[in-house]
């Protein structure tokens, strides 16, 4: 249990580091802003209490806000997907529930499950974030295009990072 907490705190720090020190500085065209830190919320253990889910999502979002100068926008999007996560997990659960000790990752539940689960969460996160940032409907389709392109890139980065972690585990 304690091990799990430390593991997630480390994950938090690493993802914030990658997001604000690396990805923020890479310019991939003006429509593409991937937000890989969402992986933190996606990858929290199944047994995480619901209240902790919301608070850790808020902590993650507000930390990113500090660096992006967006005061609450990332926090709002994070808390939103954290709220939807338990319902989504129930919707996608295998016939006899999740096995104890497993985690929401590719190596435990396979690619199709992970792609649909994380894809939906990432898309919802980006929709909330980008529309709050623009805050008008006159640029609806431009914003929508940004949401789609950025979501695809985030998903790609998330999947790649999953394979990196997976390989590390096999070596242990």
């Amino acid at each position: 249990m304690l091990n799990e907490i430390i593991r997630n705190i480390v994950r938090f720090a690493i993802l914030v580091g990658i997001q604000v020190l690396v990805i923020k500085n890479i310019e991939m065209g003006r429509f593409i802003n991937p937000f890989i830190y969402v992986l933190f919320i996606i990858g929290l253990p199944f047994e995480t209490p619901k209240w902790l889910l919301l608070f850790s999502a808020f902590a993650m979002g507000i930390t990113i806000d500090l660096f992006y100068d967006t005061a609450g926008m990332h926090a709002a999007a994070c808390v939103f997907i954290a709220y939807l996560r338990p319902g989504l997990l129930k919707l996608f659960s295998p016939r006899d529930g999740y096995e104890f000790g497993t985690q929401p990752t590719i190596q435990y539940l396979g690619i199709p499950w992970f792609l649909s689960y994380s894809g939906i969460l990432i898309l919802l996160h980006h929709i909330v974030l980008f529309y709050i940032e623009v805050f008008r409907f006159s640029e609806f389709f431009t914003t929508f295009f940004r949401v789609i392109v950025s979501s695809v890139f985030t998903l790609l980065l998330v999947v790649i990072s999953q394979y990196l972690f997976h390989r590390k585990k096999a070596q242990e």
Binding site: L66, Y68, D69, A71, G72, A76
Partner: peptide, 28 residues
Amino acid sequence: FLFLSIEVLCIYLIVQNNYFQKASFVNS
């Protein structure tokens, strides 16, 4: 309700940052 209250807090932060040009805490 917890979700709702945190979301309201976030929206408060966003609105405060947008409409009042105050030195808010959450900026770089």
